[in-house]
Structure formats: C-alpha cells, structure tokens
Simulated assay, not measured.
Amino acid sequence: MHRYVQLARMKRASHRLAFTSAESVTAIAMDACYEAPDAFARAFRQRFGQSPSSFRKSPAWGPWLLAFGPLDTARSKRMPRTFTPDDVVIRDVAPTPVAILQHRGDPALLGATLQRFIAWREAAGLHPDTNPTFNIWRSERRPALPSDYSIDLCVGTEKPIDGAGGEVVPGVIPGGRCAVLRVVGDTGNLEPAALYLYRDWLPASGEELRDFPIYCQRLSLFPQVPEHAAVAELFLPLT
C-alpha cells in the first residue's frame, strides 16, 4: 500500500513538472510529501533516470511509462470499474467550435504532444476553467500497430483559428443526441468506460451510432486535482 501511495504521489508530481510551469520544483517536492528537494530529486532520478529539472525541460516518456506500469496494474486489480445502465444518460448536445491539435502515431509520444497543446492554449489565453477540454479518439486505445494510434486534443473556443501552416487547426464537435457516461477518478484510462458503452450499453439500448467517434470532455483535470478527484464525461454520438 505504501508503494502504491508513493507511486501515485510521484505520478502527480511528474505531471506537474511536465505540464505546468508556474510551480517550483521545491513546491512540487513538498506537496509530494518529501521533506527536502534533494530527497525528491534522488527518488525521481532513481525512478525515471532524470532529475526533476531535466524532466521538466525534456521528459523521457519511455522510462516514465514503464515506471507507472505497476501502478496501473495495481489500480485495475484493486479498483475494477463497473458501470450500469443507470449511469448512462442521453443528452442533446450543442455543436462546439474547437481548436484541435492532432496526435498521430505511437501513444508513447503523446506526452510530448500534450506539452505542445498546453503551451499553445496557455499562449492563446484559453484556460481550462473558461474553455472546455475535449479528446476525440480516432482509433482504438491500443491499435495493433502503435503507428495507427490517433487522438485529437481539443479546446473549446469561438476565437478564429488560423490553421494555415500551424499544428493547431479549427474544427467543430457536432451537436446531436449522445449517450453520456460520467467517470470519476483515474480518467487517464477511459477504456473500461468506452468498452461498457460500446459492448454492453449500446446493444441493449436499441440505439444506433452516428458517424462521429466517441469523445470525452474533461471536467476536472489531473494534475490540477488528484487522480481520484478527476472527472470526465464520455460522449457516444447517436442518431
């Protein structure tokens, strides 16, 4: 249990290093319950092969993913996700204009794409508290070939986006009927919720899919909140 708690604290600390710039390494170390920055630095280097400051500048995502494999395995065994039809509501959703940064390729490189997305939205003044965050899955979470992995990182905005020559392009999440499933905690892995909607809820519902992929809105974001407090809603578009 102690190792599990340590891993969870270190995961949040590493996310704050990689995806936030306002917090100091010392503040992040203290919040992770280390008595001194040098103790945090030693533990961080031992686990990831980088110092906290080096990770903040240029994270090595491969060792990072390997380090948290035991945490994800333990979580899935200790806290398996279960859903029921009562957890799903059908909602009429309004169209949402968004700015999109596409990630195409190995999911192990998604962290670098997330860094660019967060940096762009900060520069554009599109804060998560005022402009909603969405992910649109264009592929399975674990496709047969990692190169086939595909996801759109989106922020809701009505500002004009000049997509000419840039990574960020304008788009719209279309309105319409959607089956909506809210997930609280560990929203980094929404696969169990998505599989429930596709494999269990949809065949029993009598509903039919619309020609738009499943997507989510992240209502409270890790690492701004601890993983157990993160909230996301999955949207399955229906005819």
Rank of each mutant, 00 (worst) to 15 (best):
H127A: 09
I161R: 08
T187R: 07
F83M: 01
F134M: 03
T113Q: 01
V155A: 10
V169W: 10
T113S: 14
R199T: 00
E140T: 08
P203H: 06
G165V: 12
E191G: 03
H103N: 11
P70F: 02
R78V: 09
R75D: 09
A108T: 11
T96R: 08
S76Y: 04
S139I: 04
I151K: 09
L109M: 08
A60R: 14
R81G: 02
G166K: 15
Y196T: 00
D186W: 13
D152Q: 12
D129C: 05
H127R: 04
G188Q: 09
P132E: 01
A179D: 03
G62P: 14
L65G: 02
N189H: 04
L197H: 09
P203V: 01
P128Q: 12
P85D: 13
G176K: 02
D129N: 13
L195C: 00
A124Q: 13
A124E: 06
R116N: 11
D106R: 12
F68A: 10
P174Q: 10
G105H: 08
A99V: 00
H103L: 00
G105D: 00
G166C: 14
P143N: 04
D92S: 10
A67H: 12
G176S: 11
P63T: 01
F134K: 04
G166P: 11
A123Y: 09
S147N: 12
P95C: 02
N131Q: 14
F83A: 05
K77P: 06
T84D: 01
A164K: 15
A60W: 12
L202H: 14
L190F: 10
L126H: 06
A119G: 13
V183T: 15
P203F: 04
N131R: 08
A112S: 13
E158V: 06
Y198E: 02
T82Q: 12
H103P: 15
C154R: 11
I173S: 03
V88F: 01
A112F: 13
G188Y: 00
D87S: 06
S139C: 08
L181A: 03
F117R: 05
R177K: 15
C178L: 05
L109H: 15
C178Q: 14
A124F: 14
L126T: 03
P95M: 04
D186F: 07
L202S: 11
A108P: 11
A94N: 01
G185Y: 10
P170N: 10
A112Q: 12
Y196K: 07
A74D: 09
H103I: 00
R91N: 07
V180R: 09
W201K: 13
C178N: 00
G176T: 12
T130V: 00
G166R: 15
E158G: 14
L71W: 10
K77H: 12
E207H: 10
W61C: 05
F83R: 08
G206T: 13
V168I: 13
A74K: 03
R142D: 06
Y149N: 05
P160R: 08
L197P: 06
R199G: 02
L114Y: 15
V172W: 12
W137C: 05
I136W: 00
A193I: 02
L153G: 10
M79E: 06
L110C: 07
L181C: 05
W61S: 01
R177E: 03
W61H: 07
W61I: 08
S76N: 08
A204R: 13
A164Q: 15
A60Q: 15
S205N: 12
S150T: 10
A74H: 11
G175A: 07
A194N: 09
V172D: 04
V89D: 03
